[in-house]
Design a binder for these strands. Structure first.
Lengths: 192, 192
DNA sequence: ATCTAATCTTTCGATGGCTAAAGATTTTAA
DNA sequence: TTAAAATCTTTAGCCATCGAAAGATTAGAT
């Protein structure tokens, strides 16, 4: 048995399932996939932590800010439209709006034309806050990003877009047939 | 004032803060930063959605799976080590372990040598589940990623790593004046 | 030996996020 | 006209996530 002590867990796990023939090739991919996973976790965590920090110093978290900005941008919009714009579920937007409304930054107005709809609009105070708000990504990140050579900025952006595209596509055609008890294979062959 | 109706919010916000001289140059960067932000949101959401899907069909969410795998990899580890390994806070790991323990997949054992520490280990059932578990990233994503040419895989990975690095560095830089010594420890020493 | 500082885990209180179901209204079709 | 279908928001219940503070224990210093 090969020593796997230092290998990332995904690798270790998968190695056990693969024949020796393709092993070396798969190794490479697995390793990268695993590192992608690690990087993603780091990135997600960094944004989370920034959000907390933001809230501590400006009183608003990133999603709250995001939603305020969306309302500012879109004007007098319905909840559903906001949700689509910021890429969150309606339920989530509702709960965030609850908090924003409680703080008097946003107002809900039931539509007169279609009483199922609810419009959100900024209050004067909300407007003011949006105008003075910091970026949802930290300034220093933007600064650092700005110093990268253009080719690198472009590379990062297109990588992210590719990744997002892959993931979204995967989500759509992923066949959810898995049960923990009887799944037998993993990275190598999933046929959807 | 330029019409900004169609510009994403980050741009709109940032433009308001900049003088006209550098505007065109900044425009480029802002636009990219904004698109980075959008892509990130998409990616994060895709992983979230996948996690829900996973949990619905296998009974385990991604973080739960991640933690099980980490324990499997590391053997008889303390909570703190697990937290570092999966890049989550201790508090988070504790609550996730609560659920895993309640389901009998994991067992906590207080260390005899140092009674502050708690070791986590897989139960037989937990072990079995880890061995049969699907990937924390969707199969079809891995499959698609696998078909990318090697240069692209490498490009994506290094972009992510660069991004993670920038963000972490920014978080450290942007540390509020409060506890300068406290903020850095998450990221600077992540090799356990 | 004891008091204090460091270390480790858990608890507490928030927020964010989702799906599914419930409520409310409007639209469509019989 | 009226019942069923579609549309929109909120509610309910769950999990993930964090920081801060509380508890417990060990290590260090006097």
């Amino acid at each position: 048995m090969v020593s796997l002590e230092d290998e990332p867990f995904v690798m270790r796990y998968n190695l056990a399932l693969m024949g020796d023939s393709t092993q070396l090739v798969k190794d490479q991919t697995m390793k990268r996939v695993d590192e992608v996973l690690v990087s993603l976790r780091r990135i997600i965590r960094a944004t989370d932590i920034h959000s907390k920090k933001l809230s501590k110093h400006s009183g608003l978290t990133s999603p709250q800010l995001l939603i305020l900005m969306a309302i500012d941008k879109l004007g007098d919009v319905t909840i559903g439209t906001v949700a689509k714009d910021v890429n969150l579920s309606q339920a989530t937007v509702t709960t965030i709006l609850d908090r924003l409304e409680k703080r008097g930054l946003v107002q809900r107005v039931r539509s007169e034309v279609d009483r199922r709809r609810v419009h959100a609009k900024l209050t004067d105070e909300g407007q003011k806050i949006v105008e003075d708000a910091p970026s949802p990504l930290q300034e220093s990140f933007v600064e650092k990003f700005d110093t990268l050579p253009e080719w690198e900025q472009t590379m990062i952006l297109s990588s992210l877009q590719k990744l997002a595209e892959l993931m979204q596509a995967s989500d759509i055609d992923a066949a959810p047939v898995l049960h923990v008890g009887d799944v037998t294979h993993h990275y190598t062959n999933s046929q959807n």
